[in-house]
Design a protein around this nucleic acid. Structure first.
Length: 434
RNA sequence: GUCCCCAUCGUCUAGAGGCCUAGGACAUCGGGUUUUCAUCCCGAAAACAGGGGUUCGAUUCCCCUUGGGGACGCCA
């Protein structure tokens, strides 16, 4: 059975590149009926605090990447690592030396087999390395602590890992690791190395390029299903034109050999678009809850809230959009965008027209998108102005901002009472003093 | 410097010798939705890095060049 693992070293935040590796490991395990495990490489005591570990687990939970077995903590496996080193030492496959004459005492050094090596990478294909470029390396420091390479391999053997799917930066390590597996009489797993995620300059994507850590995406109101979907597509495709996919769909068609072998650039525009796509697929109830969280007043009238959600649906791309884009629906104390006021309310005749339009609105027998539109167009024609000269001022008057949903649908949702009231307030506020 | 990897529209990609007048998506531009727009619909522009081979035929296979990236710790 296939067994994969995600082996982060907890530093307090999880980079999207690492998380993508976790996603691929998870997908690969799921798509093959195998198991996905977590190993916390917490041997660096300085950085690996309990909080840092918690951050990793939270990020995984948020994205729905639950491991199938209890996590393995590398720091607790020190004895096993050291025993392996002793074993290698006793069989002459490692030796003691003050490598580089540091004066710090003798470290345990692993002896490379002294022959050319090659392996088949699941993503990159055949990889090979000449013996002369494969140097012996330290596996236990002179202070007695195991080095990453040793710990990593010993733990992967212990956990029965069959496929190691990790970042590109480990390609060279794989030769060393394979040699270690062989020396430890263990069958080496299959390796697959994922290309990096880069920024617009082609450099490794970092926090300076925007949100680089999983937590950032959550804080900014993006959806885990969108980040999951986008990250999967950044370096993989199902082979057809499908892009916005459900998780189960990806599980069904994921294969390692369709993973791209070149670096991929994170495109914020496309990611935002994808977030919007996933947002719209979410059940109404989730939207209700998010509106209520963003705008407490939204909870007071469920029917009104549903109407607002309906009319705003196409506009909201992330949860953080709710407050600035839909806040005006739920308060009479909304702010007026200064530029919009200047351009639309201080336009010639704007306020006069607004007065007339308000009268027309109040005379309507019913107040709907259709009737308000008709009334507005009639007035525009009667006064020989373009509809836009009325449309814009009304929008600013009732919402304070220059963009939003279709105006007349918006008016219908707001209802006659609010609309008339807001127009009145606006007129008082912006009319020149008599 | 040494070693390794990569190379299709601006971006993510489809393409595993003829199906390619190179497809899709995001972004861009134009038009429409007899109102704006950060929505929606329609349309357009946009790429096989260059040079050699192999082949009847190369985006697809091989080599070189160029360009990019990565690794060279008693870090992980």
């Amino acid at each position: 059975m296939i067994r994969t693992r995600f082996a982060p070293s907890p530093t307090g935040h999880v980079h999207i590149g690492n998380m993508r590796a976790a996603i691929y490991n998870w997908l690969f395990a799921r798509s093959t009926g195998g198991a996905f495990l977590l190993r916390v490489e917490d041997t660096d005591r300085e950085r690996s605090t309990p909080e840092a570990v918690e951050t990793v687990i939270e990020a995984m939970n948020w994205l729905g990447l639950q491991p199938d077995e209890d996590p393995v903590y590398q720091s607790q496996r020190r004895d096993a690592h050291l025993a392996a080193a002793e074993d290698l030492l006793s069989r002459g496959l490692a030796y003691k030396e003050d490598k580089g004459n540091t004066g710090r005492g003798e470290a345990v050094v692993f002896r490379m087999p002294g022959r050319d090596m090659k392996f088949e990478d699941g993503v990159k294909g055949g990889l090979k390395k000449k013996s002369k470029h494969l140097q012996d390396f330290v596996i236990v420091r002179s202070d007695g602590s195991p080095v990453f390479h040793l710990a990593n391999v010993v733990d992967d053997i212990h956990m029965g890992i069959t496929h190691v799917i990790r970042g590109d930066d480990h390609v060279e390590n794989s030769f060393r690791h394979i040699a270690l597996y062989q020396a430890l009489n263990a069958e080496a797993p299959h390796f697959a190395h994922l290309p990096m995620i880069v920024n617009a300059q082609g450099k490794p994507y970092s926090k300076r390029d925007g949100a680089a850590f999983v937590g950032d995406f959550r804080e900014k109101g993006y959806l885990p299903e969108a980040l999951f979907n986008y990250l999967v597509l950044l370096g993989w495709s199902p082979g057809d034109d499908r892009e916005v996919m459900e998780r189960e769909e990806m599980v069904r068609c994921f294969t390692l050999d369709r993973v791209q072998s070149s670096a991929a650039q994170f495109d914020w525009k496309k990611f935002e678009w994808m977030n919007g796509e996933h947002l719209r697929r979410l059940p109404r109830e989730v939207h209700r809850q998010k509106y209520t969280e963003a705008i407490p007043a939204a909870a007071t009238n469920p029917d009104y809230l549903d109407a607002v959600i309906h009319v705003m649906e196409e506009r909201i791309k992330k949860w953080d959009d709710i407050a600035p884009m839909a806040g005006f629906f739920f308060t009479e104390d909304y702010e007026y965008d200064p530029k919009a006021v200047e351009k639309r309310l201080h336009a010639p005749q704007a306020l006069e027209l607004l007065v007339e339009l308000r009268t027309a609105f109040s005379d309507l027998s019913d107040f709907t998108a259709e009737s308000t539109e008709q009334a507005l167009r009639d007035l525009a024609e009667a006064r020989a102005v373009k509809p836009a000269e009325l449309i814009h001022p009304v929008r600013i008057a009732v919402s304070g901002i220059p963009q939003g949903p279709s105006l007349f649908h918006m008016l219908q949702v707001l209802g006659r009472e609010r609309v008339l009231n807001r127009m009145q307030i606006t007129l008082l506020k912006f009319s020149p003093p008599q």
